[in-house]
Design a protein around this nucleic acid. Structure first.
Lengths: 104, 104
DNA sequence: ATCACTGTTCGATGTTCATCGAACTGTTTT
DNA sequence: AAAACAGTTCGATGAACATCGAACAGTGAT
């Protein structure tokens, strides 16, 4: 039984807090990768950022608490997934504009 | 002679820094008001935020340095304008998504 | 049971930042 | 020239935050 980590209701998500979560190079890159809507493993080394795993855990928590992601627990591994459809309904076009803008 | 305040080239604007500038309640509200593309006076009291004018000057500077706005100096009054067309070309859909999302 | 593995939590540290008040710059008015 | 006006800049202060290492918790393997 995997009682997942709590996420805020999308209706309660504040745009300022969401932008705050996105305004970090590591977190923005995570969101860009997650934009495909699929779950991605949290495996710290897979992401290739030059920070400790505790720092990655902090960023994952920030994203989840801001309402951007959800965590899927499976045994001793965790996956992270963007709440894409909910986000698109609440903030139309926002995620899409990030994907394009982060390219350059 | 009004040599306006310097703005970064839009090509040099970093999405993370731009999001950082937007991730503040006062600055986001300013951008939403400025989204019509027209110049708006900086007159501190016109904006109705409960902060001192030096704080407003700080926010105006943050927006300009992030690449979001330009300042138009006219005598002893200043106006601020969103670089709407440049932003839309560089980050398509971003500003539009903020206007919608800030409503709720 | 013990060990290895994955990820979180906690406390500490240094940095960044929002805010304020005071001083300053440039402009218009008297 | 002097005073009033619109904004900026500066230094200080307190809060928020990114990062780290160590300790912890839960799960799977031996």
């Amino acid at each position: 039984m995997s009682s997942d980590y709590p996420v805020p209701d999308m209706a309660d998500v504040d745009l300022v807090e969401l932008l705050r979560a996105l305004a970090d190079p590591i977190r923005l890159q995570i969101v860009v990768v997650l934009a495909d809507g699929e779950p991605h493993p949290k495996s710290a080394q897979e992401w290739g950022f030059d920070v400790q795993k505790s720092t990655m855990a902090h960023h994952f928590k920030s994203l989840r608490e801001a309402g951007l992601t959800r965590t899927i627990i499976d045994g001793r591994t965790h996956a992270i997934q963007l709440r894409r459809s909910e986000l698109d309904a609440r903030f139309p076009g926002l995620i899409a504009s990030l994907i394009g803008g982060a390219a350059s």
